[in-house]
Simulated scan of single mutants.
Amino acid sequence: MTAAAASTAPREAWIDVAKGIAITLVVLYHAIMYLDEVGLAGALAPLNPLFDTFRMPLFFFMSGILAASAIRLAYRQLFRKRISLLLYLYIAWVTLQTLFLLALPPISPTGTPNATWASLVTLFVRPSPNLWFIYALPLFFTLAWLMRRWPPLLQIGLTAAVAVLFGSQLLHTGSPWDKMGKYLVFFIAAIYLGPMVRRLVPFVRWWHVVFFCVGYAGLVVVTTKLALTRVPFVLLVLSTLAVVVGITVAVVLARLPAFDFVRALGSRTLPIYLVHTLPMTALAAVLVAFDVQIGPAVATLLPPLLCAGAIMLALALHRQFHAIPGVFTVPVKSWVGSPKRDRDLVDSES
Rank of each mutant, 00 (worst) to 15 (best):
L35G: 00
K81H: 10
L238Q: 13
A115C: 03
S334I: 01
L47C: 03
P46E: 06
T112V: 11
A67M: 04
D344N: 05
D178G: 08
D16E: 13
G337V: 00
V121S: 09
R82K: 14
P271R: 07
L226E: 15
A118P: 00
F100S: 09
D260V: 11
A242G: 07
Y34M: 11
A297C: 00
F259N: 07
H318M: 02
T116F: 06
L236M: 13
I32R: 04
A115P: 05
A284E: 00
E349V: 08
G64M: 05
T248M: 13
V262Y: 13
N130T: 12
I23C: 06
I91C: 14
T159F: 02
R11T: 14
Q155P: 01
K179Q: 14
R263G: 15
A68E: 05
N130M: 11
S350G: 06
A284G: 06
A299Q: 05
R148L: 09
P46G: 05
Y90E: 13
A254T: 11
G266F: 09
P49F: 03
V214N: 13
L146S: 03
L99G: 11
S69D: 09
D342F: 10
W335H: 03
L165W: 09
A92H: 03
F233I: 15
G215S: 13
A3S: 10
L274C: 08
L253M: 14
S267A: 15
P232L: 10
W93M: 08
G20M: 14
I21Y: 07
G337H: 10
A13C: 02
T173Y: 14
S69R: 11
I21R: 05
K19S: 14
V244P: 01
F203S: 15
L89A: 09
A144P: 08
L278Q: 01
L143M: 12
L102M: 13
S7K: 07
I21G: 05
G20V: 13
A18T: 12
S7N: 06
A161T: 13
R343H: 04
G64Y: 02
F51C: 04
V298P: 00
E37S: 11
M62E: 07
L143C: 09
F59R: 06
A314T: 02
M1L: 02
T2C: 02
T173S: 12
G215K: 09
A74M: 01
I324H: 12
G181D: 00
L25G: 07
A144H: 05
F203L: 15
L184N: 02
A9K: 09
